Amino acid sequence: NKEHILAQKEVLTPIEYEHYVKHLFDIGEITKELYIELSS
């Protein structure tokens, strides 16, 4: 869920976080809207 993803932002580097969010989007775990929101 969104809270879990945002928690990852605390422990990952910005680049790792971007890759993580992109991966979730690629596998269909999150919607495009959520992907855009989380990567901003």
Rank of each mutant, 00 (worst) to 15 (best):
L6M: 14
Y35W: 15
H4R: 05
K2L: 11
K9F: 11
N1G: 03
H4T: 12
K2F: 10
V11F: 15
L6T: 10
H19N: 15
E37G: 02
S39I: 02
K9P: 02
K9E: 03
I5V: 09
E3A: 15
I36N: 11
L24V: 04
L6H: 07
I15E: 10
Y35K: 01
V21M: 07
L24C: 02
E37V: 09
Q8F: 13
L24K: 06
E29Y: 14
Y20W: 14
L34K: 04
V21T: 05
Y17W: 04
F25D: 01
G28H: 09
K32E: 13
H19S: 15
E3P: 11
F25P: 00
I27P: 00
K22W: 09
G28A: 03
N1V: 04
S39E: 08
L6S: 07
V11K: 08
E10F: 10
V11M: 13
Y35T: 01
L34C: 04
E18N: 11
F25Q: 03
S40G: 12
E37P: 00
E33H: 05
Q8P: 00
E10H: 08
V11C: 05
L38G: 00
A7G: 14
E37S: 09
H19R: 13
N1P: 05
L34E: 08
K2Q: 13
Y20F: 07
K9C: 05
E33F: 09
I5Y: 11
D26I: 10
S40T: 11
V21Y: 03
E29V: 06
K32T: 13
E18F: 08
E29R: 07
S40I: 14
D26Q: 15
A7F: 05
I30M: 06
I30N: 00
A7I: 06
Y20M: 07
K9N: 05
E37T: 10
E18A: 13
Y20A: 02
Q8V: 15
Y17T: 00
N1C: 08
L34W: 10
H19T: 14
E3Y: 09
T13Y: 06
I15F: 13
P14R: 14
V21K: 02
F25S: 04
E16A: 13
Y17E: 00
S39R: 08
E18Q: 05
L24M: 08
H19L: 14
L24E: 02
T13S: 09
L6Y: 08
F25H: 05
H19E: 07
I36D: 07
K9R: 08
T13E: 12
V21D: 00
S40P: 04
I5Q: 02
L24D: 00
E37W: 06
T31R: 03
K9G: 07
E16V: 05
A7D: 08
K22S: 12
L6R: 03
I15H: 15
K2G: 03
S40R: 08
V21I: 11
F25I: 02
S40Q: 06
G28Y: 04
E37A: 08
T13M: 05
S40A: 10
T13C: 02
I30K: 00
E33L: 09
E18G: 10
Y20G: 01
I5P: 02
H19C: 04
E29N: 12
E10T: 04
N1T: 10
H4I: 04
I15K: 04
G28R: 05
D26W: 12
T31N: 07
K22M: 12
S40K: 05
Q8S: 08
H4P: 06
I15M: 11
K22Q: 12
L38E: 02
Q8G: 03
L24T: 02
Q8A: 09
T31P: 11
V21S: 01
E33Q: 07
I36S: 14
V21L: 12
E29L: 10
H23A: 11
S39M: 07
H4D: 15
E16N: 06
A7C: 04
E3M: 13
E16T: 04
H4M: 14
H23I: 02
L38V: 13
L6I: 07
L12E: 01
Q8H: 04
Y17Q: 01
L24P: 00
K9W: 10
K22Y: 07
L34H: 06
E33N: 10
L34N: 07
V11P: 03
E33I: 05
S39K: 12
P14D: 07
Y17P: 00
N1A: 03
L6Q: 12
T31F: 04
K2A: 13
E33T: 06
V11I: 14
K9S: 07
I30V: 07
A7K: 03
I27W: 11
T13F: 05
I15P: 11
Y35G: 01
E16Q: 10
Y20I: 04
Y17S: 00
I5S: 02
K22H: 13
L24N: 02
H23E: 11
E3L: 06
L38I: 10
T13I: 04
H23W: 12
L24Y: 03
N1W: 12
E16G: 06
K9H: 07
Q8L: 09
E10M: 06
H4W: 06
I5F: 10
E37Y: 09
F25K: 03
I5E: 01
I15Y: 06
I30A: 00
L6D: 03
I5W: 09
E33A: 12
L38T: 03
Y17G: 00
G28P: 00
H4Y: 14
K22I: 07
K32G: 14
I15L: 12
I27F: 06
E10P: 10
K2D: 05
I36V: 13
I30P: 00
E18P: 01
T13P: 11
K2N: 06
E3N: 11
L34D: 09
